[in-house]
């Protein structure tokens, strides 16, 4: 997601207003044609695989389709989706997951960025170390953490040091702890990315501001509270939006670590749609659920984006 937080580059250029200077164009049609030639790949890919695909999904959501036979199904897929207990469960799970992961990863990333901003030397080394999880594939992450969370594994041993009863606890086998275990895995790997976003956000805050504040006697917590955080607000919003979009699409960890179980406690919408479409071949139902989900996310993002647009520039 490229939302340029630091409008150094092209800051003056608002989104699609375009080219500025108007020179004499002897043959505008030619430039039009050239433009479309430049856009052909993008139009084919984005047009085909997003807009046409959306149309196909909408079409299929009114049919019973198992990849072999197509049968008109009116709005029954939507009725079924709205009443589908698994769909409700998946929505609840993902909202819970999103709230916890976005909150914790943002706080964690911000805290580390603030600490990194205050040390004298060695910033690069720490940054690299912290960044390693971010480049690790989610499948690898899932496999490693499945092993760590296994009964009698490392997490059990660590926690068992304090609560001996939990030594052989199956974190991924209990409906109460499976999703939190996946949350931990995710936070471990994504916090670093956002930490770097915060670090650069911090560097953009002009040093004179701190200097001025220091003269006014604002140091330490007060400077953090009065200068750093308010000026970091756009970055915080960015991190929140990116985190929200990312968490709503969680799939890999679920596939690798729990397969949606135990008792559907880690079932997420993407996982549900995947299984319905590609394992059960209820393609129409899966499309209907995807559309409902899309409408929810769309509304949600519009609201969030409104916030971003008004705060992104400082």
């Amino acid at each position: 997601m490229a939302i340029d937080v630091r409008p150094k580059v092209g800051a003056q250029a608002k989104v699609p207003t375009g080219g500025g200077t108007r020179l004499k164009r002897p043959r505008p049609y030619r430039e039009w044609l050239t433009s479309y030639v430049f856009l052909i790949p993008a139009i084919i890919v984005i047009g085909g695989f997003t807009f046409v695909a959306m149309g196909v999904a909408l079409f299929l959501s009114f049919f019973k389709y198992d990849l072999f036979t197509l049968q008109w199904n009116d709005i029954h897929n939507y009725i079924k989706a709205v009443g589908n207990a698994d769909f409700h469960k998946a929505m609840l799970n993902v909202v819970y997951y999103m709230l916890v992961v976005v909150t914790l990863q943002t706080i964690l990333a911000l805290t580390i960025a603030l600490v990194l901003d205050r040390i004298m030397a060695g910033r690069g080394v720490f940054r690299t170390v912290y960044y390693l999880p971010a480049i690790t594939s989610s499948v690898v992450m899932g496999l490693i953490f499945s092993w760590l969370f296994t009964p009698g594994g490392w997490v059990g041993t660590a926690v068992g040091g304090v609560f001996p009863g939990l030594r052989n606890f199956g974190w991924l086998l209990d409906p109460g702890t499976a999703l939190p275990a996946i949350m931990t895995t995710t936070i471990w790997s994504t916090a670093a990315t956002f930490m770097i976003v915060f670090v650069s956000g911090l560097q953009d805050i002009p040093a004179q501001l701190y200097e001025a504040a220091r003269i006014d006697g604002a140091v330490g917590w007060r400077s953090l509270w009065n200068i750093t955080l308010p000026l970091l607000r756009p970055t915080i919003f960015l991190v929140t939006v990116l985190g929200t979009i990312g968490t709503l699409q969680v799939f890999d960890q679920v596939y690798v670590m729990t397969n949606g179980g135990p008792l559907k406690s880690t079932l997420t919408p993407v996982f549900l749609i995947y299984t319905e479409a590609f394992r059960d071949y209820s393609v129409g139902l899966a499309c209907a659920e995807a559309f409902i989900l899309f409408l929810i996310i769309f509304t949600f993002t519009l609201i969030q984006r409104r916030f971003i647009d008004t705060t992104i520039e400082y």
Binding site: A53, V56, Q249, P269, Y274, V283
Partner: peptide, 12 residues
Amino acid sequence: PLQVTMVPKFIM
């Protein structure tokens, strides 16, 4: 999001 387009993309 990908979940809306993954099924039709596969079918296409």
